[in-house]
């Protein structure tokens, strides 16, 4: 996942969090972070033919 894609996703989730009534926690951003962290952990072990 490139940095640009990540940044765009981050901005989109942030806007969603602000516009929706997530007053306590930015839930979409939190979910995105969890997905990215899991991806970063798992990706080195995934075999890619290229």
């Amino acid at each position: 996942m490139s940095r640009h894609t990540l940044l765009i996703l981050f901005l989109i989730t942030l806007i969603l969090d602000i516009s929706l009534s997530f007053i306590r926690l930015p839930m979409f951003t939190l979910i995105l972070c969890v997905i990215v962290i899991l991806y970063e952990i798992v990706s080195p072990y995934i075999y890619s033919p290229s």
Binding site: L14, D17, I18, S19, F22, I23, L25, P26, T29, L30
Partner: peptide, 17 residues
């Protein structure tokens, strides 16, 4: 920092969004 200070950050960012 974003998660911890979310309520105040959200209130400040809302006018722009």
């Amino acid at each position: 920092a974003l998660f911890y200070f979310w309520p105040s950050i959200r209130a400040k960012l809302y006018p722009y969004v």
